[in-house]
Computed example of a mutant assay.
Amino acid sequence: MKGFVLVLGCLIAIQNAQGWRNFNRGRSKGGNLGLPAGDAVRGSESEKVTTEWFTQYLDHFNPNDGRTWKQRYYVNDQYTSKRRDVAFLMIGGEGEASIEWMTKGAWINYAKKFNAICFQLEHRYYGKSHPTSDLSTKNLQYLTSQQALADLAFFIDEMNKKHELSKNVKWIAFGGSYPGSLAAWARQKYPHLVYGAMSASGPLLAKVNFSGEKL
């Protein structure tokens, strides 16, 4: 699989310039990347994308707290092979997840090349993934990158079972900006679950009162 990661890395590097232009053009105030660039998707492709809901724990770090909530995710399994040994995960960030990304974008081209099953997991507290009834200060204590990373780990483990993926399945995490950080951290924190990560423009170094920098 070293060759697989090397080829994937080369493909990402080749499209980096175009992807960065799309990133800057499509980025909105909320932090989300907008919609992917590219040609219109054929109906047969989009029809095979499913919207599903995952039972997620509210607090992964308190064994006495068994509260759960429903987290939205998308699945596209039309490119996977019978081996089901490659899985791509697009990590949701500070914006609503978009089903458009499930059939368009560079990562879908990679999925077709490497026969990957594709998932996109919406970040807790964004879009339609509401862990709590309101956004009070008390409830927002569960909006942390640590909880989001644990969401990813639990999700991957359960998807392995639900979709009967190979015991040797290689999960590749994708993310840009904040989700880019999550992708890198997921690979570092859960190497037994995440085989590789594509982290685009991830702000990995924390800064106090960070207001952003113009390129």
Rank of each mutant, 00 (worst) to 15 (best):
D59A: 01
R42W: 11
L35A: 13
N62W: 04
F54I: 01
P63R: 13
S44G: 13
G30R: 05
G43W: 10
E45T: 10
N32Y: 11
V49N: 04
H60S: 05
T50W: 03
W69A: 05
F54P: 06
Q56S: 14
G31Q: 02
K70Q: 11
D59S: 10
V49C: 05
G66Q: 10
G66I: 02
D59G: 04
W53A: 09
W53M: 11
E52V: 02
G43S: 12
E45Q: 13
L58C: 09
D77A: 14
S46F: 15
D77I: 03
R72T: 00
D39K: 15
V41K: 07
D39T: 15
T55D: 14
E45D: 15
L58Y: 00
P36E: 09
N64W: 10
Q71M: 01
V75G: 01
V75F: 07
V41N: 05
S44P: 03
G31S: 02
N76G: 04
G34C: 06
D77L: 03
N64R: 14
R42P: 09
L58I: 12
P36R: 09
V75H: 01
G38D: 05
R42T: 14
T51N: 08
K48F: 02
K48I: 03
R72C: 02
G30A: 03
H60N: 04
S28I: 13
P63W: 09
P36Q: 08
S46L: 14
N64M: 11
N76L: 04
Q78L: 11
R67L: 07
A40I: 10
K29F: 15
L33H: 02
E52S: 13
D59T: 06
R27I: 13
L33I: 12
T68C: 04
W69D: 05
G34D: 05
K48G: 01
Y57M: 12
F61K: 08
L33A: 12
W69M: 03
T55L: 11
K70L: 08
G66C: 07
H60I: 08
R72Q: 11
Y74I: 08
N32D: 14
G30S: 00
Q56H: 03
L35E: 13
T55A: 11
K48R: 15
R27A: 11
H60C: 04
K70E: 08
T55V: 13
K70M: 04
Y73L: 00
N32F: 10
A40F: 02
R27W: 09
G66E: 07
L35P: 05
V41E: 12
E52P: 02
F54E: 00
D59N: 15
R42Y: 12
N32G: 15
G66L: 10
K48W: 01
A37M: 08
G34W: 00
L58M: 06
D65N: 15
V75Y: 04
L35M: 11
S28R: 14
S46A: 15
E45V: 13
V75L: 12
F54L: 03
R42N: 15
Y73E: 04
V41P: 06
A40P: 07
K70S: 10
W53Q: 09
Q71Y: 01
N76K: 03
T68G: 06
G43Y: 07
Y73I: 00
S44H: 13
V49D: 07
N76I: 05
T51C: 09
K29H: 13
G43R: 10
Q71I: 01
